[in-house]
């Protein structure tokens, strides 16, 4: 009973936000001289209106689940990490290199090696921010942002330099993976396995944060570091662990982009998934299960953007306005949330 009420309570601000967003977007579209009601219909139709639309939405959602976890897990320990984009790029690059070097080994081993390399690389990259935070007191938000820019520069330097496959003509890339090692689609769907792994990662993160001592300890560190220190928790090490864990998820996002989509590492890995993950994590109040829903929502907006452009000739920017409106409302309507959100 209590659980139902809780669920209902947390749904209320979301519904309110969606209604307000729809209203505001309709006004905006109408004021610009486009048919408002049709635009709203198309948003729904493009995102969730058919089997094809759902698959379109889910394909776009997969990487964002991972990048949102890169924000959500450190946030539990009280850190605001906004540099997932860099960890994604470097994780993807590491995965691509392992995939090429191990090309002759069994597929399972190649993929496991790629995932491990991506995890470790992404984890270490965001781990730098966690480490700087607890060893030197450097603000992790700014350091992770700087590291994102640095990571992207290092990525471009390597991919257009030493690691460039000479055969990748006008799109500098690393050598391609063997097609045998590519991750395929979930049977019966036009959606790659990255989606399933993304959902699994969210579930695993949820279990870890909710049902383990580690998760409990991290929550205390995030809630009140002073109290955590007094109870004898290794605050610094816990913060480091949370940031490494989060960065690992962003690295995995890169690995799936390489192994399920691109087939190699190139600048297209940096498509903004890291930044979208920040929004999703905050809108989900850093709850790993909420991240699943938030990522699907962003995926859906991407899919409907495509339909809006094609059917109404709305410019791409209209979808960006819609996304902004939706997330501003989602975050603003937190105020209706009865439960005292810890990170609110």
């Amino acid at each position: 009973m209590n659980m139902y009420r809780q669920a209902l309570d947390s749904l209320r601000p979301i519904v309110a936000a969606i209604v307000v967003t729809a209203g505001a977007f309709a006004l905006f579209v109408a004021a610009s001289g486009y048919p408002a009601v049709e635009a709203l219909m198309l948003v729904g139709k493009g995102a969730f209106g058919s089997g094809f639309a759902w698959q379109n939405t889910l394909s776009r959602a997969a990487p964002i689940m991972f990048t949102a976890l890169c924000v959500a897990v450190p946030a539990r320990a009280g850190m605001v990490i906004i540099g997932g984009e860099g960890a994604l790029a470097l994780g993807g690059l590491a995965a691509a290199m392992v995939g090429v070097w191990w090309a002759s080994r069994p597929v399972v081993m190649v993929l496991a090696g790629m995932a491990l390399a991506a995890w470790v690389t992404g984890g270490l990259w965001i781990g730098i921010s966690g480490w700087l935070r607890y060893r030197r007191g450097v603000n992790e938000t700014i350091s992770s942002l700087l590291l994102a820019y640095i990571g992207q520069a290092v990525f471009n330097f390597l991919v257009e330099g030493w690691l460039r496959d000479p055969a990748s003509l006008n799109k500098p890339s690393t050598a391609p993976l063997d097609s045998r090692d590519m991750i395929g689609n979930i049977p019966g769907m036009e959606v790659h396995w990255g989606l399933a792994w993304g959902v699994l990662a969210c579930l695993a993160a949820w279990w870890l944060l909710r049902h383990t001592v580690f998760g409990f300890a991290i929550d205390i560190v995030g809630g009140n570091p002073r109290a955590a220190k007094m109870t004898g928790l290794p605050v610094g090490r816990l913060m480091l662990a949370a940031s490494v864990l989060g960065g690992g998820f962003a690295g995995l996002a890169g690995m799936f982009e390489v192994a399920a989509v691109q087939g190699c590492a190139n600048a297209d890995l940096m498509a903004g998934y890291g930044y979208q993950g920040i929004l999703v994590s905050f809108a989900a109040r850093h709850h790993p299960l909420g991240v699943i829903a938030g990522a699907i929502l962003i995926g859906g907006l991407g899919a409907s953007n495509s339909l809006l452009q094609r059917h109404l000739d709305l410019p791409d920017a209209a979808a960006q306005v819609l996304q902004g409106l939706l997330f501003v409302s989602l975050l603003a309507f937190e105020t209706l949330n009865r439960r005292g959100g810890r990170h609110a």
Binding site: V80, I278, L279, F282, A283, F327, L330, L331, A332
Partner: peptide, 15 residues
């Protein structure tokens, strides 16, 4: 109350 300024900022950037 309870609205996080960091997150709203990022959403406002998009908007």
């Amino acid at each position: 109350p309870k609205v996080n300024d960091i997150a709203v900022g990022i959403a406002m950037m998009l908007f």
